[in-house]
């Protein structure tokens, strides 16, 4: 049982808000940033929202947080349309890089603004984070470095304790030590104060271990969604003599293939049953795992013919395309 489920079963703490979309489409002129997207995010979990630059992650996050209305379709956060729904809107915190704060005001003023508006604001925790990130309280936001500004945004997001907290590439400007502080803080704070957290990113390597659920979108459409551990088992790298590999992967969903001399490495989407694993061993092929980041790269590769229609790209579990 995942920690998220354990937390959801507790009745003395709030557990976050669910998020659902139905046929959600968001257009910018002729371009569909989100295209007929239907998803459901369970409350009380850390979700990874993954996609390449321009895949629609920020637009989707903005729609969750009522920063913009859908062109068509619907969004439900905690069962309500968040757009202009005061009770729901006050429970959502979307942190875009640098945060949405007044440039002319100091860090202290930014904290005061959040303190007065965020119903679940934790002032002690905010001050603690300010110390950890070594942010200068008296400095105006416009004079903060990009990294400091990102750290301020992360501070506002974590200390808001909002039932739906979304970090949209919030930490990209931070240096490695500061990002590490963010990762260190996110998990214990989530455990102590369970809520729904969405981390939107295209830099998966550092944060992949935090995710319970993963949602991959590309060109505004769903590529894959599922339990993070489950996704990690969906990719297999098959390495061996080219002809043998070709025969072995025939009929499987091959996401990528590399050749080095007579050796071929093929990335296959899907689980191999025991019989196939025995076949591979008998044929002298080696099987290896594919990390979440590698799987993401393959799933969203523009070279992948399946990405011509991401929503229809993948069979449910590694079957032939």
């Amino acid at each position: 049982m995942s920690l998220g489920v354990e937390m959801r079963e507790r009745d003395d703490v709030r557990v976050g808000l669910s998020v659902e979309t139905r046929n959600l489409t968001v257009r910018f002129g002729a371009t569909a940033a989100i295209n007929d997207l239907t998803i459901s995010l369970e409350p009380g979990k850390i979700h990874g929202l993954l996609g390449r630059n321009g895949s629609g992650k920020s637009t989707l996050a903005a729609t969750f947080a009522a920063f913009r209305a859908p062109t068509s379709g619907s969004v439900r956060v905690g069962g309500h349309d968040p757009y202009e729904h005061a009770r729901t809107a006050s429970q959502i915190c979307l942190i875009r890089e640098g945060g949405d704060i007044y440039d002319q005001q100091s860090v202290t003023c930014a904290l005061a603004l959040s303190r007065s508006m965020r119903p679940y604001w934790d002032e002690k925790y905010a001050k603690y984070l300010i110390r950890r990130f070594q942010l200068p309280l008296g400095k105006k936001a416009q004079r903060l470095s990009r990294g400091q500004r990102s750290a301020l945004g992360v501070t506002l997001g974590l200390a808001s304790r909002a039932p739906l907290t979304i970090f949209d590439e919030s930490y990209l400007g931070m240096d490695a030590p500061s990002r590490e502080i963010f990762y260190e803080e996110l998990l214990p704070d989530y455990v102590a104060h369970p809520r729904t957290i969405i981390v939107s990113t295209h830099l998966i390597g550092e944060v992949a271990s935090l995710f319970e659920e993963v949602l991959v979108i590309d060109r505004g459409r769903l590529v894959v969604q599922g339990d993070a551990d489950d996704l990690r088992t969906r990719g297999v790298e098959v390495v061996g003599p080219a002809a043998t590999v070709d025969r072995f992967v025939s009929g499987l969903t091959v996401l990528a293939e590399r050749r080095l001399g007579a050796t071929t490495s093929a990335t296959v989407y899907g689980r191999l049953n025991r019989e196939r694993e025995r076949d591979a061993a008998a044929a002298g092929l080696s099987l290896g795992p594919v990390g979440l980041q590698d799987l993401f790269i393959h799933l969203t590769s523009p070279d992948d013919p399946a990405i011509g229609d991401p929503a229809a790209a993948l069979p449910p579990d590694g079957a032939s395309r």
Partner: peptide, 21 residues
């Protein structure tokens, strides 16, 4: 995971945590 690769700690950060565990 089922394929034998680790799911905890990445990029040498030495984290011992992941939310699913």
């Amino acid at each position: 995971d089922a394929l034998g690769h680790g799911t905890t700690g990445t990029a040498g950060f030495g984290r011992t945590a992941r939310s699913g565990g």
